[in-house]
Design a protein around this nucleic acid. Sequence first.
DNA 1: CGAACCATTGACCCCAATCAATGAACGTGG
DNA 2: CCACGTTCATTGATTGGGGTCAATGGTTCG
Lengths: 238, 238
Amino acid sequence: MYTVAAVAKDASRFDLNRSVVCRGLSQQAARPLMAISSLHRKAPGEILFAEVDEADGIYEVFRGIVRLYKLLPDGRRLITAFLSAGHLLGLAMGGGVCVFTAEAITDVTLCRYKRMAFERLLDEVPGLAKRLLAVTSDELCATQERMLLLGRKSAVEKVASFLVLMAGQQGDDADEVAIPMTRSDIADYLGLTISTVSRTLTKLIRQRVIAIPTANLIEIRDRDDLEQLAAGEADADL
Amino acid sequence: MYTVAAVAKDASRFDLNRSVVCRGLSQQAARPLMAISSLHRKAPGEILFAEVDEADGIYEVFRGIVRLYKLLPDGRRLITAFLSAGHLLGLAMGGGVCVFTAEAITDVTLCRYKRMAFERLLDEVPGLAKRLLAVTSDELCATQERMLLLGRKSAVEKVASFLVLMAGQQGDDADEVAIPMTRSDIADYLGLTISTVSRTLTKLIRQRVIAIPTANLIEIRDRDDLEQLAAGEADADL
DNA sequence: CGAACCATTGACCCCAATCAATGAACGTGG
DNA sequence: CCACGTTCATTGATTGGGGTCAATGGTTCG
């Protein structure tokens, strides 16, 4: 763990203008946020906080990818989200207790705002609460889509949706999509098993919708088809 | 549709202290909210707004139950939430467009706050944004649990979870749970089919976990068992 | 009384899970 | 450098949970 002061020289990693929390706030308003923040690094597999922990703050991901997940007693896992740079983490704590586990899947840099102090700033910094409300509203909106996927989409539709989502996150024009997570992660994100994810991917390859040069790199060969599959508009051509 | 003035005599249905939006705000702060609100009634089956509509405001449910759902092109439906009195509706609009359809399933009374004016009040009324942030955070927290259910729970676990949820919403001590929605609604809420919901309920009856005097009334006979099933802690006794 | 809707239940089927084998990619240490 | 273990991905064989189709009965309502 590094305090902000300690890495102050590395300004690009803690630039207020890049911070999602601070965006839209005046420099002056953002300053108190600086004061209660600290920069952290995590290696792949490291846990930021677990499901039972007391919520200790709000995190913002600066670099890398974090997975959030919930577990059932017997080990079944559902990944509720993959968070990349610019995403917030810790806003949805139920009564001060974490409702999911957060774990780094790549090397991760993030910034933590102390909970108590942050709560106080919500009253003091004008526009901060409204800004966070916008963020959580967007998130809530995205989870609606995810529930539809989890509850009603077929395996092909799920995998296609995932690929479209990943493609959308990294420059729209690029047809090569980097997949930083494992098949197991994808499966637990889509409510499937590893086998089914793998089988479905090869099915998409055979249909020439995608190609997979490396396991972690997927090339989209027919974006229209893929998006149609993702939307559940495909006729009967699986 | 009724304006607030028109139903002002019916004070109990538009009491600021009962309003979730206004709770925690001073009387003075709440007054401008009154000014931009209007009271509405909807009959069962009436649609408040549909998935493609422009978001026209924030609603608060005062009485009755509303279902929110999303559809796939071929008609598959997922009900994302049942909203009862005290719930807000319309906060999670993606870029001013509704991301789901809202439909009354009972007679419903609700209050609408005009969108534009409401947005303005977020800046002007101290504490309002923070209050709504708390509401959306709680909601976000609840959707995590729902995603786990949709993605990883078995039919029995889903139905048991649903019953526990319904029981929790209406006085904890009562063992008779009123089910105001149809089996079809339950199915689309849990990501199952009508048949499976029905079959699962009779299975629970045979295990003496519940009893169903009327289709819309479920008696919980063994709450511990039910909660264990809901949590996914049951061994192998289906 | 009949129509419409809802819930239950049975017979059957299929999609995705399970079980299991194989291969590829990577470190690590001898 | 290569043998070895480990983790990850693919793929086949088989199973089973829940979907589909369909018949029946109960309620409500016009």
